[in-house]
Nucleic acid binder design. Structure first.
Lengths: 333, 333
DNA sequence: CTGAAAGCGCTTACAG
DNA sequence: CTGAAAGCGCTTACAG
């Protein structure tokens, strides 16, 4: 059996209350009993039962992370950032993956409530109204990660419109005028739609024509990038550059260009998004927008910490900015 | 305030015990009170407090995962596999990352004990004696993931010697005789040492000479692969193939070969290890050994489940085998 | 079929 | 400086 406060108390000849106080560093006990209590606790290998403690303090020192998919590099890095800072704050992390499914999201919010977590970090697709409602009812402090959200929930994310704009502007600054895009799905309001908006905005602001047929949809994966690029080349082989909404698709684009007997960047320049390791593995290395995944993680955890402890938030919505990584896949025209 | 059993009991006019039994599906209450209890519970939005429940049942339905690093693709995928099956078994997952540091590992074992987890999955570097000892004392059911371990702890992993052998044998079968290796650190008894052993064994069994100077150490990262390959080319430009202990290093090798003005696979063939996405991003695509990360994850979770429930294990050590992915980076001589 | 009681391992006023 | 008591929200024999 595990050793309890009672065991220590009996052995020392004091009461559980005293042992509890001493072990928790509450004010003065006689130096003598203090010493003895610590001694006996160590001898017996006492480990406080946090479950029992949580029941009375109503704090579990654990927070729940609801996330789409750990096998995805991007989310894995966000999770990593969260874990690092959580452990610094002495919070444990319960991780639940949802695949972006609303049903799973609801299930886990309920579960985390039952487990009495002190707070929730939500990094799983767009947050449906049902989740918001449930979160409100359960009254668990929540911060949304990597998603803009209409709700007044605190959140930390990047500005996808602005960052895409930056990528496309870079191509324009390098003299490109006929720029295609390999996008995500426009129904995905985040990396899908917003990155398209940034692309269009950049063209528009620079008096370049937006041709809808030059925006080809992929699913962020490498293969879809290949297919999309092939389609683009078939449609219009006079383009000189392409902006891909993910590095995987960007690398796919490079592959397709080469397969078509053309060269990157001599014939076609490519810019990606993410700064995934594959952007460095490709040949040529892919120019890309570097997302601060780890920072997204730790900033959200910091925010949540403040919310839990009732501290004021200076900003309810934090936008982190991304860095343009200039590499060999873009040429100056 | 959260609604409790007591609230329901009062409203229905029965006792907490009855409510508890009904909600837990314990045998027969009158159909009438059952209905009413469920009704009231739903109306009040009752959610059982699992902390209170755990205190009495001595089960938390959560397991702890001690893992090196979530930002690392390999471990992230292992974690993903674990999470998927854990949630199927209705276990929550507390994830703690250690960076492979013994001190952190010990800290988290203690913490998980205090949190009364039902079991631990250990996927963090070689397990030091101190951890084994602590695990024994705390008596938490444990399964080791992706690491061979002398101890009689159950474990699931791949056979690094055998899989490396397979990779090198493939090169030999394709007519290669002068094969270099980009290895990990030999002090790392797993992917470091064992992959070197497999390489040597394959050469040996095929009467090829082992030249220590053709084994150059990297750190599994892309850059180190480039450096190692440059060194190898400097030492002996008559080699026709290289086996890299990771895909990142393999891709690095390809880059170095190209930079030296040679071609892959025409001049030098390359085989990697992992089947990381970058093996597909590289040009040419990298032939590699595909590790079953997700399966590593779920098999270990399944094993742990059995241990927790006192079921007999047919095998205490499970070896999963890897698949050789034949791609364009190897040529037949 | 249901109640009353004890207990899980802690913490925390309240006294003294 | 320390005890005695109550309580956190449940479950589970034990009666009846």
């Amino acid at each position: 059996m595990a050793v309890t406060l009672k065991d220590i108390a009996e052995k020392v000849g004091v009461t559980e209350s005293t042992v509890s106080r001493v072990l928790n560093g509450i004010p003065k006990a006689s130096e003598e009993t203090r010493k003895e209590i610590f001694q006996v606790a160590a001898d017996l290998g006492y480990k406080p039962n946090q479950i029992a403690r949580s029941l009375v303090t109503k704090k579990t020192n654990t927070i729940g992370l609801i996330i789409s998919d750990l096998a995805n590099t991007y989310f894995a890095r966000v999770a990593s950032g969260i874990e690092n800072i959580a452990s610094k704050y002495e919070y444990s992390l319960i991780i639940s993956t949802t695949g972006g499914q609303e049903k799973e999201e609801l299930k886990y919010i309920n579960l985390l409530k039952e487990k009495q977590v002190d707070g929730i970090l939500f990094a799983s697709g767009r947050m449906p109204e049902s989740c918001r409602k449930l979160l409100r009812e359960t009254e668990i402090p929540t911060v949304v990660v990597a998603r803009e959200v209409e709700e007044d929930l605190p959140s930390v994310h990047i500005n996808n419109v602005k960052e895409s704009y930056k990528a496309v502007k870079y191509l324009i600054n390098n003299g490109h005028q006929k720029i295609a895009m390999i996008s995500g799905n426009a129904n995905d309001k985040e990396s899908g739609l917003y990155r398209i908006q940034g692309y269009k905005q950049a063209l528009c602001d620079n008096n370049l024509e937006i041709k809808e047929e030059l925006i080809v949809e992929g699913n962020f994966k490498l293969k879809s990038g290949i297919k999309a690029m092939e389609e683009i080349l078939k449609k219009d082989d006079s383009i000189t550059a392409v902006f891909a909404a993910s590095d995987e698709m960007g690398v796919g684009a490079i592959k397709a260009v080469k397969k078509a007997g053309l060269k990157v960047p001599e014939d076609i320049s490519v810019v990606g998004f993410d700064n995934n390791i594959i952007s460095l593995a490709s040949d040529p290395e892919l120019t890309t927008i570097s997302q601060p995944e780890e920072e997204l993680g730790w900033r959200s955890m910091e925010m949540l910490y403040k919310v839990i402890n009732g501290e004021e938030l200076e900003e309810k919505k934090i936008y982190l900015s991304c860095e343009l990584k200039k590499r060999a896949s873009v040429r100056r025209l």
